[in-house]
Amino acid sequence: MSESADTILEVDKLITSFETEQGLLRAVDQVSFSVQRGKTLGIVGESGCGKSVTAMSIIRLLPQPAGKILGGHVHFKGTDLVRASDAEMRKIRGGDIGVIFQEPMTALNPLHRIGRQVSEVFRLHQKLSKKDAWDAATEMLKLVRIPAPEQRMMDFPHQLSGGMRQRIVIALALACRPSLVIADEPTTALDVTVQAQILDLMAKLQEEMGMSTILITHDLGVIAETCDEVVVMYAGRVVERASAIELFANPLHAYTKGLLSSIPTLDTPSKSILNTIPGTVASLGDYSHGCRFCQRMGRTAPVSRERPKFTEVSTGHWVETCPECYQP
């Protein structure tokens, strides 16, 4: 993969492992993708496929001392984040790269008021005075459409609804107007109406600020609505990558087809049994060296024991070309 002027983030053959009782196990296995300026990249897959570990590897927030990046590069605006110092990463995290975590109640400190937590970002990264940081934080709450922001600044996290807390987490991520935002399942814990509001808010703020976004989710409906390009992950690997339009119109990997076929449509008969993918994602210690979707499906053909090549089968459309799972 080669970095272009329009590319803000380039992940190249990233390998992340965890030290366990079974030894060093790979959770992310040579993952590659890029994010274009001002665009949204969606990473989709079932739980346990390595989506969040990939995101935490990019910003070097892996659990320590177990998590280790063993190989690959993460180029962000000319800096290889894998090899950046801890001091450099502290400047980049929360500054030029914002993170929206999955569960706002765990992302926010329950012991501190909202105002203190949001203003702290401005004090750390922009070196503002206490008063200026407080004023900037209040303006940030207005930007994410929080009513009565002056009052909310004095609240504790438990005093806010789930949707309001998620808006606070978005405010924290966007406080320094980052070039890139990583959103790790930002709407999972929200009801449908609040989810729609949050996605609409993120889209508007992205357009206003011109930032790029990595959106991690298991919801293909969210992917179709918000993303320009999609990465499909399975068992720590990327099995398919294409533009959102191309992926939904012409999925080529059996796993991608399985995910798409599990979504109910307007033509689905009432009370019908939905399609499912048989089996489950293997645990880290049981990963096959060969095609891991073949492993799930119980295929034992010799071709399924070798790692499939990741091939560009048409312009911008990449897929693992396992003879069993590649279905053009």
Rank of each mutant, 00 (worst) to 15 (best):
residue 290 G to K: 09
residue 8 I to C: 05
residue 237 R to S: 14
residue 214 I to S: 01
residue 128 L to G: 07
residue 210 G to W: 00
residue 69 I to C: 04
residue 235 A to R: 07
residue 260 L to I: 12
residue 140 M to Q: 15
residue 127 K to H: 15
residue 263 I to S: 12
residue 40 T to W: 00
residue 183 A to C: 12
residue 324 E to I: 13
residue 284 L to S: 14
residue 108 L to Q: 05
residue 11 V to H: 03
residue 106 T to M: 10
residue 298 G to T: 10
residue 294 C to A: 15
residue 301 A to E: 15
residue 309 K to Y: 08
residue 24 L to C: 03
residue 175 A to G: 09
residue 184 D to I: 14
residue 12 D to G: 03
residue 37 R to T: 01
residue 209 M to L: 15
residue 227 C to I: 00
residue 35 V to K: 01
residue 289 H to F: 14
residue 134 W to M: 11
residue 297 M to N: 09
residue 29 D to K: 02
residue 132 D to Y: 09
residue 71 G to A: 02
residue 166 Q to D: 14
residue 101 F to D: 13
residue 190 L to N: 08
residue 9 L to Y: 03
residue 151 Q to E: 15
residue 318 W to D: 11
residue 34 S to I: 01
residue 207 E to S: 06
residue 39 K to T: 00
residue 166 Q to N: 14
residue 273 I to H: 07
residue 224 A to L: 00
residue 260 L to Y: 03
residue 108 L to Y: 03
residue 326 Y to D: 10
residue 204 K to A: 13
residue 321 T to S: 13
residue 205 L to T: 10
residue 119 S to Q: 09
residue 83 R to L: 05
residue 231 V to Q: 00
residue 232 V to N: 04
residue 192 V to Q: 08
residue 287 Y to E: 12
residue 267 D to M: 08
residue 318 W to S: 14
residue 162 G to L: 13
residue 326 Y to T: 01
residue 216 I to W: 04
residue 108 L to H: 04
residue 52 S to R: 05
residue 207 E to H: 04
residue 122 F to T: 11
residue 103 E to I: 06
residue 124 L to H: 06
residue 167 R to Y: 09
residue 274 L to C: 04
residue 278 P to D: 10
residue 328 P to H: 10
residue 249 A to Q: 13
residue 199 L to H: 02
residue 189 A to E: 05
residue 206 Q to T: 00
residue 29 D to S: 07
residue 194 V to Q: 09
residue 212 S to Q: 01
residue 264 P to C: 05
residue 317 H to I: 09
residue 188 T to L: 12
residue 221 G to Q: 03
residue 289 H to M: 10
residue 295 Q to E: 13
residue 74 V to M: 04
residue 218 H to Y: 01
residue 234 Y to H: 13
residue 285 G to I: 08
residue 291 C to I: 11
residue 233 M to H: 05
residue 3 E to L: 15
residue 141 L to Q: 13
residue 313 V to H: 09
residue 43 I to P: 02
residue 268 T to H: 06
residue 122 F to Q: 08
residue 35 V to H: 03
residue 265 T to W: 07
residue 17 S to Q: 15
residue 328 P to R: 09
residue 299 R to V: 13
residue 292 R to V: 08
residue 96 D to L: 00
residue 21 E to D: 12
residue 242 A to D: 06
residue 4 S to L: 11
residue 265 T to I: 02
residue 93 R to P: 02
residue 302 P to K: 06
residue 285 G to T: 10
residue 110 P to W: 06
residue 154 M to F: 13
residue 201 L to T: 08
residue 18 F to Y: 14
residue 308 P to V: 07
residue 301 A to P: 00
residue 328 P to T: 10
residue 5 A to V: 11
residue 53 V to Y: 00
residue 128 L to E: 12
residue 11 V to K: 05
residue 68 K to Y: 10
residue 16 T to K: 07
residue 244 A to R: 06
residue 98 G to N: 05
residue 73 H to F: 01
residue 199 L to K: 05
residue 168 I to S: 14
residue 3 E to P: 07
residue 54 T to L: 08
residue 234 Y to G: 02
residue 170 I to Y: 10
residue 226 T to M: 12
residue 265 T to D: 07
residue 76 F to I: 04
residue 110 P to K: 03
residue 309 K to A: 13
residue 39 K to Q: 01
residue 321 T to E: 14
residue 315 T to E: 11
residue 29 D to I: 06
residue 91 K to T: 00
